[in-house]
């Protein structure tokens, strides 16, 4: 009985983990290319969630169709923020970029609160369920999982098969060298920031497919922290590392929840969160470049 429950939870964890992973790719991409930690990360996820919610509730648009819209919107936001502030902070101390990205997050939260209010919302998208033997999953969660995996795959192909993708990779490895080789480094920075934000907003769509309730302007904070743990798991500067980090994180989160629930006298939810941060510290200590990186 408990074994079956654990397997079911782990499977759920894997499905959720794919979404988590996708939700961290933008963070890793921006850190990898620009060496900036986007502390306002979760707010961009929240924007994606609201886009989905708004399109669904106001126009009845299928959340899957919200993805391209969210992506374009995120790219636009990214470009605006890049040219408004990030570009001027290229050589500024870390403190400045941390605080500016944090302020972006606050700004987005407050604007969304201004427009939509701060109560919790949700939507109800019924597309059936699928029985996986040990557990039953709504199809929407499967869409979110496969959608995330597909985005990760597309990003991988784009990085490796297109000229722009290769240029971006060269900047990650050696920005000075890339500049010498004629790569428009400034352009790559702007585009990477926009792409990172675009991906993050899309992940907000995916997350609402997984959890279509609890949407509110401040929902992003928790995801920012989870994304940090996942990004560090995956090596902080590698988007694919982040994707696999997400899978591992999803497994650990759901698996440990089941186990903590068996221990009397503890609150399993809080202990699960504690475990993820303990993991973060341990990984940072023993291998700050990430468990999944070969460096």
């Amino acid at each position: 009985m408990e074994v079956e429950q654990l397997t079911g939870n782990l499977l759920q964890g894997l499905v959720l983990g794919a979404v988590y992973g996708m939700a961290t790719m933008g963070l890793s991409l921006i850190f990898g290319v620009l060496r900036i930690v986007n502390v306002g990360h979760g707010a961009f996820i929240m924007v994606g969630a609201f886009i989905t919610l708004w399109l669904f509730n106001a126009f009845g648009i299928n959340p899957l169709l919200a993805i391209p819209f969210a992506f374009m919107f995120g790219m636009g936001l990214g470009l605006i923020f890049y040219y408004a502030a990030i570009r001027k902070l290229r050589n500024a101390p870390e403190l400045a970029t941390l605080l500016v990205t944090f302020s972006f997050g606050i700004l987005l939260e407050e604007v969304v609160k201004f427009i939509f209010g701060s109560e919790f919302r949700g939507y109800n998208w019924i597309v059936g369920k699928v029985n996986l033997g040990v557990t039953v999953l709504p199809m929407s969660k499967m869409y979110a999982c496969f959608g995330s995996a597909l985005v990760a795959l597309l990003l991988y192909l784009w990085f490796n098969k297109t000229r722009a993708g290769v240029a971006m990779r060269s900047v990650v490895q050696d920005s000075e060298g890339a500049r010498v080789c004629g790569v428009n480094v400034g352009g790559v920075y702007a585009f990477s920031f926009a792409l990172g934000i675009g991906l993050t907003v899309v992940s907000g769509v995916m997350l609402t497919m997984f959890i279509p309730v609890g949407i509110n302007p401040y929902m992003g904070g928790g995801y920012t922290l989870k994304a940090f743990v996942i990004a560090v798991l995956g090596g902080l500067s590698s988007p694919y590392g982040a994707f696999f980090g997400g899978l591992i994180f999803g497994l650990i989160e759901n698996g440990s929840y089941t186990l903590f629930a068996l221990i009397p006298g503890v609150e399993p939810f809080a202990m699960t969160r504690f475990l993820s941060f303990a993991m973060l510290l341990i990984i940072l200590l023993i291998k700050p470049t990430g468990l999944l990186s070969t460096k």
Binding site: F31, R35, V37, E94, L98, L225, F228, V229, V232, L236, A270, M271, R273, F274, F277, A278, L280, L281, L284, P288
Partner: peptide, 17 residues
């Protein structure tokens, strides 16, 4: 950045512990 992230971890980890 690694230090900044680690300290977030300490704060949240302590709270949830």
């Amino acid at each position: 950045a690694y230090f900044a992230i680690a300290t977030i971890g300490v704060n949240e980890g302590l709270r949830f512990l």
